[in-house]
Write a protein that binds this DNA or RNA. Structure first.
Length: 575
RNA sequence: CGGGGUGUAGCUCAGCCUGGUAGAGCACUGCGUUCGGGACGCAGGGGCCGUAGGUUCAAAUCCUAUCACCCCGACCA
């Protein structure tokens, strides 16, 4: 393809709205343009990358035995009412009405549609297992779209749904998808982690997320330095099973702490380490008020709290509201003598007792011990792990934290949808059996952004070979020179015959401009075709990743470049 | 949903406070010079100053409303 005939609107300056690297570079390299908040048009170069990802996903899904279908974006409300999600999904669901005033939505996901299809078309256990996937545009009306493609509202997603006769069979389907995902991200040339994830409001047995490691990631993931344990922070647990040891704590005492409100203030005022204090958090749930008690330096994990309490809504009210509800200013709330139900993190069972609010402004209690000074509450993990804590799975490892971009999610759904929508088959005994489902998503467009987050330098994108819009860029120094253009044409022809995609920069631009754009667009191999070196029978080949340029004769160039492309692809080939 | 910010040429921005015929750099067009890492000169084209009201002899500038986009927050007692 010729640069001069393709719309590749590169930008010299940084667009103001772009905060993260991938967003900035996608705009500057001319891959995308914004249409609306969280909605982007894919330009020719960007679309080629998107297609590469799609192709890899499609090949690996096919290989794993999934069948491709295409469900449509617009879905009738009836199905969502059947599953119960019409009422529960909230504002992220883009709802609309047709001319007959009937309700529809633009699908953010397709569990209902596929379950409806399967219940209509599948009758017998003999037809199982089944796994359908599609690559489709989704719309989620995000509260705050940001980071360009990374958290857009309209995006491209691969979603797959498996149907099995029982949980054992689901396990097989799940493992196959897990393996396929590893192959996909590996082929994309991405550094990623599969982590255990919270199953969230959907419930279900188990779930893994696939994260591309990048500083700009919106998620935090914890992994073990020694064993394979890795989990989303929402789910990660500490191996630190600190329980009350022996030793006789002092009796509980009431101490005046004038104007000391925060943990830090109280801790330094009383000269007690924060590890010996607790914080008492009042949360509002649909089940009413709950007091959560955590060690002073620990951070509440709301997902864990919601799971532990069995609630779907949990908010930390504003300080004024807490005062209204309890009659005590936030800094002085404590578990002793309260009538609110208490749930505590195991980390509050410290041997020497703890410091907590006295439920009276300006007073705290010290040496408080569960059971001795107040009834023991239910203890359950409520907090975020921190870096350096022991691994929960092995003896010698410690946890490290990374930032990650979630690009894939596999999920054992169980019978949530099949039961609600009555998707059944007849088993060996002629009995109706509810199907057991799994669902598996990949953010196809997000992978493009994630790949850039992980592969760039100050000058622009550095595409992994497998995702590059073109593998080779021919940089013709002077396109008016017929000999040079002929050399370029010959190379284009030879390479495309071998399946290598070539972009030829034939613009009548200064050399510096072309080099800058070549760097920006990140095409992995760059061939400089100039009069001087061509006369010497040499072509200069430079990898975008850096390193010394190599030279090839025009006769060897096609084969040489082809080999270089193949070599780099082979590095990430899935097994 | 709350708070903040910005809307002026394709892009990045000045002008607004203190009202008086709309600017710069880059990009674009033409000519010339130059040209193996974002050249230079000359000459050009391009903007209802987001939109709608209002104040005024006069509004990009002041006031009101509205829309859009961006950022922060929606959590640590």
């Amino acid at each position: 393809m010729r640069f001069s005939q393709t719309l590749i609107p590169t930008l010299r300056e940084n667009p103001v709205e772009a905060q993260v690297v991938s967003h900035r570079l996608m705009l500057r390299a001319g891959l995308i343009r914004q249409l609306n908040a969280g909605i982007y048009t894919w330009l020719p170069l960007g679309l080629r990358v998107l297609r590469r990802v799609e192709t890899i996903v499609r090949q690996e899904m096919d290989r794993a035995g999934a069948q491709e279908v295409l469900m449509r974006a617009v879905q009738p409300a009836e199905l969502w009412e059947e599953s119960g999600r019409w009422a529960h999904y909230g504002k992220e669901l883009l709802r609309m009405k047709d001319r007959h005033d009937r309700d529809f939505c633009f699908g953010p996901t397709h569990e209902e549609v596929i379950t409806d299809l399967v219940r209509r078309e599948v009758r017998s256990y003999k037809q199982l297992p089944l796994n359908f996937y599609q690559i489709q545009t989704k719309f989620r009306d995000e509260i705050r779209p940001r980071f360009g493609i990374m958290r857009g509202r309209e995006f491209l997603m691969k979603d797959a749904y498996s149907f099995d006769k029982d949980v054992e069979a689901l396990d097989v389907s799940y493992k196959a998808m897990f393996a396929a995902y590893q192959g996909i991200f590996q082929r994309c040339g991405l550094e990623f982690r599969a982590v255990e994830a919270d199953t969230g409001s959907i419930g279900g047995a188990s779930s893994h997320e696939f994260h591309v490691l990048a500083e700009s990631g919106e998620d935090t993931i914890a992994s073990c330095t020694n064993c394979g344990y890795a989990a989303n922070l929402e789910k990660a647990v500490s191996g630190d099973t600190e329980v009350a040891s022996d030793g006789t704590p002092e009796p509980m005492a009431r101490i005046e702490t004038p104007n000391k409100r925060t943990i830090e203030e109280v801790s330094s005022f009383l000269k007690v380490p924060v590890e010996q204090t607790v914080k008492s958090l009042i949360v509002e749930t649909e089940e009413g008020l709950i007091m959560l008690v955590l060690r002073g330096d620990h951070v509440l994990n709301e997902v864990k709290a919601m799971n532990a309490l069995g609630v779907t809504q949990l908010t930390l009210p504003e300080p004024e509201r807490v005062r209204e509800l309890t009659g005590v200013p936030v800094g002085s709330i404590g578990p002793v003598g309260t009538e609110i139900t208490i749930v505590a993190d195991p980390g509050t069972q410290m041997a020497g007792g703890f410091v907590c609010g006295a439920n009276e402004a300006g007073w705290h209690l010290t040496n408080v011990v569960w059971e001795r000074d107040l009834p023991a509450p239910r203890f359950v993990d409520l907090r975020n792990v921190t870096a350096g804590e022991p691994c929960p799975r092995c003896d010698s490892g410690t946890l490290v934290l990374h930032r990650g971009i979630e690009v894939g999610h596999v999920f054992k759904l169980g019978e949530k949808y099949s039961q609600a929508m009555n998707a059944v088959v007849l088993d060996e005994n002629g009995r109706e059996k509810t199907l057991v489902m799994g669902c598996y998503g990949i953010g196809v467009s997000r992978i493009v952004a994630a790949a850039i987050e992980q592969n760039h330098d100050d000058n622009g994108i550095i595409w992994p070979m497998a995702l590059a819009p073109f593998q080779v860029m021919l940089l013709v120094i002077n396109p008016k020179d017929k000999a040079l253009m002929e050399a370029a044409s010959a190379l284009e022809k030879g390479l495309s015959a071998k399946g290598v995609d070539v972009l030829t920069d034939d613009r009548d631009e200064r050399l510096g401009v072309k080099f800058k754009d070549a760097d920006l667009t990140g095409i992995p191999l760059r061939v400089v075709i100039g009069g001087r070196s061509l006369k010497e029978g040499k072509l200069e080949i430079q990898s975008r990743r850096g390193g010394d340029p190599t030279t090839l004769s025009p006769d060897d160039a096609v084969e040489g470049l082809y080999q270089m492309v193949q070599q780099e692809l082979a590095l990430n080939a899935s097994s």
